[in-house]
């Protein structure tokens, strides 16, 4: 009895705690419900629909698509335009993982030493990012690349025999990427600058007192502090690069001769020009797989305690 008596209050306490925990979990689920329902409605349901469509010959309007197994996947894998698109997406990813990152981080470091004017610089560098993609694309197409009204045209009239890079099979992808990088790097600058400014002043001062030079302060003080931000942006850039659509569509629509075709523009063309929604869905699934890989990397980083 003694034992029982001694145990009984603990059991009661545990029951009460369990009940409270249960109620707490219920509230948690209730609070999470809108987000989960929203995600299911606008992500999961279309995602499953896309997956199912990728195994059919749906033309986008018919009510009775037929199941075709993995035919769509086999067809797109055999299509040279698909292979070009995958290659271009990889090039695009590599470009965005290097150029705007180096540029953004470098300028952010420079602006650290300009506390009074860095606000103005940030606004200036962020301007392309807040402008509509169509505006940026038109500015570059007509004021830079155009052989009539652009810088290229001006140089041609001065006797410089320069072809517009947008018309080159080898150069068009870089010409479009240049515009998107110009539009995007200011955003990275702002993010990196914000992260750099979170570095504890004591650590910086301690390093400087120890005689560390600028590179050493960056390498051993700033970099460890902004690493989580850099890792997050690394993953986000990977995801965005495989989904990129706007600048390619606005400037080249995948041309010339499919040389700037991306998975997204290829899927768009299959769906809206040739009524092959099944194949377009298969391309979409492939794009999703790349995004999923990046998401898994991000999740693993988070679990390792990277604080991202």
């Amino acid at each position: 009895m003694t034992v029982l008596n001694s145990v009984q209050p603990d059991a009661d306490t545990a029951t009460v705690k369990d009940a409270r925990r249960g109620r707490g979990h219920g509230v948690h689920y209730l609070l999470l419900a809108p987000a989960i329902l929203l995600s299911m409605a606008i992500v999961l349901v279309p995602g499953v629909f896309t997956l199912v469509t990728s195994f059919t010959d749906w033309n986008g309007v018919a009510a009775d698509p037929e199941f075709v197994g993995v035919e769509n996947y086999a067809a797109i894998l055999a299509d040279p335009i698909f292979r070009t698109a995958v290659g271009n997406n990889i090039i695009w990813t590599l470009l965005f993982l290097t150029i705007p990152v180096v540029l953004g981080l470098g300028v952010a470091l420079l602006l650290l030493r300009r506390p009074r004017t860095r606000g103005l610089y940030q606004v200036i560098f962020l301007l392309p990012y807040v402008m509509a993609a169509v505006t940026n694309a038109m500015v570059w197409l007509n004021m830079i690349y155009s052989p009539i009204s652009g810088v290229i045209g001006f140089l041609n009239k001065q006797g410089w025999d320069i072809d517009s890079p947008i018309s080159s099979l080898d150069g068009a992808i870089y010409a479009v990427a240049a515009v998107d990088i110009w539009h995007y790097w200011g955003f990275l600058l702002v993010v990196y600058l914000a992260a750099l400014r979170q570095t504890p002043v004591e650590q910086i001062e301690a390093a400087q007192l120890e005689g560390a030079n600028s590179w050493q302060v960056f390498r051993y003080v700033y970099l460890p502090n902004i690493r989580p931000t850099m890792q997050l942006m690394f993953v986000m850039i990977m995801i965005f690069s495989f989904l990129t659509f706007d600048y390619i569509f606005l400037m080249t629509q995948g041309g010339p001769a499919n040389s700037t075709e991306m998975l997204s523009t290829f899927a768009y063309s299959l769906a809206f020009a040739t009524f092959q929604f099944g194949k377009a869905a298969a391309v979409g699934i492939v794009m999703g797989v790349f995004g999923l890989v990046a998401s898994v990397i991000y999740t693993r980083m988070s679990r390792r305690g990277m604080d991202v």
Binding site: Y145, S146, I148, D163, S164, I166, S167, T252, G255, P256
Partner: peptide, 15 residues
């Protein structure tokens, strides 16, 4: 005229 990918109809008409 070597500018096929740099021109649209409007610009062509202008030229």
């Amino acid at each position: 005229g070597g500018q096929y990918t740099n021109l649209n109809f409007l610009e062509s008409m202008q030229l």
